[in-house]
């Protein structure tokens, strides 16, 4: 018990040091940008991991929440010239509200039907971004989204934004970790294992699934907010079906039901395309092959898979 706590504290410490060290030592703004993207993707993956890894409910439409966060802040800051700090709570509230309305009927479904339901929702939101030109700017989207500022302090430099994003990641990790270790987290995992039995011990599975769906959407909304103010322009293409699938892939590749796995998956899937530019025409082929190979060799995901190999070589299980 205490060794567990120690390990947890140690991993937070290492995480902090790594973030601070990266922020201080890296001067190349390209690398800082890539790291910032990893951070944004990590928030997305963390949120989806709560839903998929812990509660066992798939969502193939998470890019919609990501996009809603980004578009809300873009519209409020560019169109109405409001402060981003006012836009943030609005974005979160809107995303949560949409998640509630969509989740209410959708989360009654299960398996592929749930997957398809969420996918359909994502598609529809994407089409709204693309076609409702008067509000969303249509296919060209929004440009000139202002950088974030806090009083006189500006987050416009790559380094400051890197810190901002990774602080958000850390907050998200702590938030998720605390939930997982609690009564609520256990109830979530119980839904994953057997929804039937979960109801029988008194868990209101419908409400709980809805709540975790809203939480996961809220995190995606925050990621969208950070994305919009980072790249300063958005267009519908960033929030389409492929992106939803990519977020799912991050969670599964990293290892479901593992917080560090979500980070690992987000890092890998952000870095991979950067590395694969070298393959030019073969880029897609290699990308697809890597995805397949990782899943074939380590079907439990990277974290679980590597841990399993380690444990198998070190100790024998209680049978």
């Amino acid at each position: 018990m205490s060794s567990k706590l120690l390990r947890k504290t140690a991993s937070y410490g290492i995480f902090w040091i790594a973030v601070a060290a990266a922020g201080m030592s890296i001067d190349n703004s390209y690398y800082l940008q890539v790291l910032t993207f990893i951070g944004i993707h990590s928030i997305l993956a963390l949120g989806l991991n709560m839903l998929m890894g812990y509660a066992g409910q798939i969502s193939l439409g998470h890019a919609a929440f990501y996009g809603l966060g980004a578009y809300t802040t873009a519209i409020m800051t560019v169109h109405y010239d409001l402060s981003p700090w006012l836009a943030l709570p609005c974005a979160i509230c809107l995303v949560i509200l949409v998640a509630f309305i969509v989740g209410l009927p959708t989360l009654k479904l299960s398996g592929y039907y749930l997957g398809m339901g969420t996918l359909g929702f994502g598609m529809i939101v994407h089409i709204i971004f693309r076609e409702w030109t008067s509000v969303t700017g249509g296919a060209s989207g929004y440009v000139g989204i202002p950088p974030l500022e806090l009083g006189a302090f500006s987050f416009s430099s790559s380094r400051n934004y890197f810190y901002l994003v990774w602080c958000t990641v850390l907050i998200s990790i702590v938030l998720c970790q605390r939930l997982i270790d609690s009564r609520i987290g256990r109830a979530l995992r119980s839904i994953h294992d057997s929804e039937h039995a979960s109801k029988a011990v008194g868990v209101n599975t419908r409400n709980l699934k809805l709540q975790v769906f809203m939480l996961s959407a809220a995190l995606a909304g925050v990621a969208g907010f950070l994305y919009a103010h980072f790249v300063s322009f958005i267009s519908p293409g960033t929030f389409d079906f492929i992106v939803s699938i990519r977020i799912v892939t991050m969670v599964v590749i990293g290892g479901m039901a593992s917080i560090w796995g979500a980070l690992l998956g987000a890092s890998l899937l952000t870095l991979l395309p950067e590395w694969l530019h070298a393959f030019s025409d073969f880029e897609m082929i290699v990308y697809g092959l890597i995805l397949m190979l990782v899943m074939i060799i380590l079907p439990q995901g990277l974290t679980r898979g590597i841990l399993d190999i380690y444990e198998r070589s070190h100790k024998k299980y209680f049978k």
Partner: peptide, 27 residues
């Protein structure tokens, strides 16, 4: 029908769900 990915004590802890009340924010 146990919660198979959980430990023995966690199974019992889930059983106490209705007799405990810590909510989202307090957690």
């Amino acid at each position: 029908e146990l919660f198979e990915s959980m430990t023995v004590i966690e199974n019992v802890l889930v059983g106490q769900y209705v007799r405990t009340r810590s909510g989202f924010w307090s957690t």
